[in-house]
């Protein structure tokens, strides 16, 4: 099964493999703001209800997004490091 950004626990790091293109406008937006293949992503914080939204560290930036958008980011492998 494909791993998604939403599958990562707090402080767990994944590497971006691809984007779910079922909503092309969304994957474009995600790319534009700074997510790309090969980037390390690490969830840092979660919202109170349903862990939504989440904030993610990517390339030294911190980006906040909702889970329904985050699930479009597909991951390669899951490392268990503490930080990106």
């Amino acid at each position: 099964m494909t791993k998604r950004l939403t599958d990562l626990a707090k402080s767990e790091t994944g590497v971006i493999l691809d984007f779910d293109d079922s909503d092309p406008a969304l994957s474009t937006r995600l790319r534009e703001i700074g997510f790309a293949e090969g980037d390390n992503v690490t969830p840092l914080h979660f919202g109170l209800f349903g862990k939504n939204p989440m904030s993610v560290r990517v390339n030294g930036a911190q980006i906040a997004l909702r889970r329904e958008d985050a699930q479009a980011i597909l991951l390669k492998a899951v490392k268990s490091e503490a930080s990106a």
């Binding site: 919202g47 209800f49 349903g50 939504n52 939204p53 904030s55």
Partner: peptide, 16 residues
């Protein structure tokens, strides 16, 4: 603050 409150906004159906 936008991040913190968003958890509630999402429940209501408001845009983030």
């Amino acid at each position: 603050a936008a991040f913190l409150v968003d958890t509630l906004m999402a429940k209501i159906g408001l845009n983030g």
